[in-house]
Design a protein around this nucleic acid. Structure first.
Length: 722
DNA sequence: GACCTGCTGCGGGATG
């Protein structure tokens, strides 16, 4: 074994030998050297099952054993985004730590109180925890934090990419800063991930004050061969003889996926239910055993566990038709093929999904992309004519092949999460001065974009007697107000993200899962859910329970959702595809026909030379050629001028009444900086959990830092009108 | 025009 191996503590070496490993992987050897030779923060980037966890923990555990820190508390901290991942990783670490007699403590909502009580009494070893449970520790045991983490030498953040620019990521970075302030020294940060697009941005997220000193250990090459096919399907010509696109795709999946483990990403929970139902029917018709199962977040934990166990079980071929639930997280083993129905929303997600396939030596990664487009008719809309779904699929696959994926957005203010953290700091300390809270969160912590003026404005908003989240004592100390007290006291406070209200679906006394409250259901109605068909028997409004029993037919439920956000670069590539002449080799003949039609229509509508195409006096299509943030900013501006606007990938469809002014004139006014208040007619600006406690001006400020880009309006409208 | 993630403390009753 290598020199890196020699550095490790005896019990760790012994465990490695017991596994029969002949040598350490390259990233493990490099990580061991870096951790032993420097105090640097570290990013370990390698594919799933690439040995990242060991790369971090072999040297860390060794250091804990050979050169323990002075002080009390847990020696190492691990943060995971999912409960299931923590359970999995705790089991893996248990093996290594048994030999070393180092306790491994999993800690999340499903871990029993007795394990937590014992760990609090004698905190040592490795603590594996979610951001929310760590948050709860700060609020419930605020004064004990220094004692619990006094000896902590490193924090390992798993699936680092999920914590980059999300509200949850900001919360985590705030908690890590507060942890370092509590123990009065920095803790080495180690991020693990398979899907980081821009390493410099990831470094800046891991350690904002010293991004350039963050070390990067990246697994080199070894990428599996990629086999790729894009298939086109026409919908809208269903009759007796010709199957619908859905049936045709289901039949194709059935033929090619049966007999092995696969993941089918259907894009939406309703489509998951539809495809799982069709595939189930096909198995039943051919009298074959079931091997296609739905998997999404509204299905009961019990059903999801069953599907995950089947995927892990090599003896039972299983295809999960899923949403992003199976995109990351627990190890389900290698799958033969990844199918994607409809265009994905981000290249990053596509890359993460594809990483589930082709992980075994000599096995290719296989991506089957299905695009559904309607047959063109005289009255077809421009969205159908330009085949925007297919074009986006091509653009995303191209960018994936080039190794690009969406970077995080570092400029966002995250005011909702700021409100949460203000309450959390006050609760942790039992009261705090405004300047102390500002220093912790905005000077040291992740809310660096928040100026003292905006911070004071947020304090005034949440301290307003009508809001009642905080109040000020005569001494000037900030305390929780009556509403704040109630909020922080409930367990629902710990998560920074919003969750919708739902009904529980029950059959024969067992939970099937949950349904959003806006599904209109009545007794006697039919339903497809959890891959089976049901009839509604009873609805209990107060308990939010729907009782169903099996039925022969069913209708897929409605799940709702938000608008996706497509990056500028993806839209830019879509226009390049529409204007280009060559066709990728991975396309089938139907999708090639669709691409030719799209290019011809693009030419016909004049978008090669023009940005605006008008249909008569009242309707125009604008090719904005930019992503969702900029396009929706222009949409807001045009709406405030009285236009009715529909938004699509890189395009706006604009309609005006008789009274509305000329589109080009309005664009001219906007480009001259003479636009109206685009938030005057205020769409709904309340999108995050703590937004309801902020006033309009703060909500506008928050939106402008992430969802809207007013700075682009001038140049964008100038370019479009000329 | 979509998806996903998370959760404490206490009281009451059963069990050894």
């Amino acid at each position: 074994m290598s020199s890196a191996f020699d550095k490790l503590a005896r019990p760790v070496q012994k465990w490695i030998r017991q596994q029969g490993w002949r040598e350490l992987r390259d990233i493990q050897a490099r990580s061991i050297r870096t951790i032993y030779e420097t105090n640097a923060d570290l990013i370990v980037a390698a594919s799933t099952a690439g040995g990242k966890t060991e790369a971090a923990f072999f040297p860390l555990i060794s250091q804990v054993l050979d050169e323990p820190f002075d002080g009390t508390g847990f020696d190492l901290l691990y943060i995971g985004p999912l409960k299931a991942l923590i359970t999995d990783q705790a089991m893996r670490l248990e093996g290594i730590c048994q030999e070393a007699e180092l306790p491994v403590v999993p800690w999340h909502g499903d871990v029993s109180q007795s394990i937590k009580t014992r760990a609090l009494k004698s905190p040592k070893g490795i603590l594996l925890i979610t951001p929310e449970s760590l948050e709860a520790l700060f609020i419930r045991r605020g004064l004990k934090i220094a004692r619990l983490f006094g000896a902590t030498r490193a924090v390992v953040i798993d699936e680092l990419h999920t914590f980059l620019d999300s509200e949850r990521g900001v919360q985590l970075r705030s908690l890590l800063t507060r942890l370092e302030l509590a123990i009065k020294r920095p803790i080495r940060r180690i991020g693990l991930s398979a899907t980081l697009g821009d390493m410099d941005l990831a470094k800046a997220y891991l350690r904002p004050d010293a991004a350039s000193s963050v070390q990067l250990i990246e697994a080199d090459g070894g990428e599996a061969e990629l086999r790729l096919q894009l298939r086109g399907y026409f919908s809208g010509d269903e009759d007796e003889t010709c199957p619908s696109a859905t049936d045709a795709i289901a039949a194709h999946l059935f033929k090619h996926l049966r007999g092995s483990d696969n993941l089918v990403f259907a894009g939406a929970r309703q489509r998951v239910e539809i495809y799982a139902d069709r595939l189930r029917e096909l198995c039943a018709r051919e009298q074959l055993p079931q091997e296609f199962y739905p998997h999404h977040a509204s299905l009961s934990r019990e059903h999801r566990d069953f599907v995950e166990r089947r995927l892990k079980d090599a003896a039972k071929p299983t295809t999960a038709v899923c949403t992003s639930t199976l995109e990351l997280g627990i190890d389900i083993g290698d799958v033969t093929c990844v199918a994607q129905i409809g265009a994905p929303f981000s290249v990053a997600a596509l890359r993460q999904r594809l990483g589930r396939s082709g992980r075994r030596e000599g096995q290719p990664a296989i991506l089957r992309q299905y695009a559904v487009e309607t047959k063109l008719m005289a009255e077809s809309s421009f969205v159908d004519r330009l085949r925007l779904g297919l074009i986006r699929s091509i653009a995303m696959i191209d960018l994936l092949l080039e190794g690009w994926c969406e970077p995080p957005k570092p400029q966002a203010l995250h005011l909702s999460t700021l409100v949460h953290q203000i309450l959390s700091v006050i609760a942790q300390r039992g009261g705090a001065s405004a300047s102390a809270v500002y220093n912790v969160l905005c000077r040291e912590g992740p809310f660096r974009r928040v100026t003292t003026e905006v911070f004071a404005d947020v304090l005034r908003a949440i301290g307003h007697p009508e809001t009642g989240l905080i109040e000020q004592a005569d001494s000037g100390l900030l305390l929780l107000g009556p509403t704040g007290e109630k909020l922080v006291d409930h367990y629902s406070f710990y998560a920074v993200f919003k969750t919708p209200e739902e009904f529980r679906l029950v059959a024969e006394g067992r939970d099937l899962g949950t349904l959003p409250i806006d599904n209109v259901l009545a007794p006697g109605m039919l339903l497809i859910f959890s891959g089976r068909r049901w009839i509604v028997q009873e609805i209990h409004d107060r308990e939010k329970v729907i009782v169903v029993k099996p039925a022969k037919a069913g209708v897929p439920p409605v799940f709702g959702g938000d608008a996706g956000e497509i990056h500028d670069k993806v839209i830019d590539r879509m226009f390049a595809v529409l204007e280009g002449g060559t066709s990728p080799a991975y396309m089938d003949s139907v999708s090639l026909t669709m691409l030719e039609e799209a290019r011809a229509q693009y030419q016909l509508l004049g978008f090669r030379n023009e940005n605006i195409h008008s249909f008569g006096e009242h309707r125009s299509i604008i090719a904005t050629r930019v992503g969702t943030v900029k396009t929706s900013t222009l949409a807001l501006a045009l709406r405030s001028e009285g236009f009715s606007v529909e938004q699509h990938d890189g395009f706006l469809q604009v309609e005006n009444g008789d009274e509305t002014p000329d589109l080009r004139a309005v664009l001219g006014r906007i480009s001259a900086g003479d636009a109206r208040d685009i938030f005057g007619g205020a769409g709904n600006l309340v999108s995050e959990k703590f937004h309801p406690y902020l006033h309009h001006e703060l909500l506008v400020l928050d939106a402008c830092s992430s969802k809207v880009d007013t700075s682009c309006l001038g140049t964008l409208s100038e370019r479009l009108r000329s």
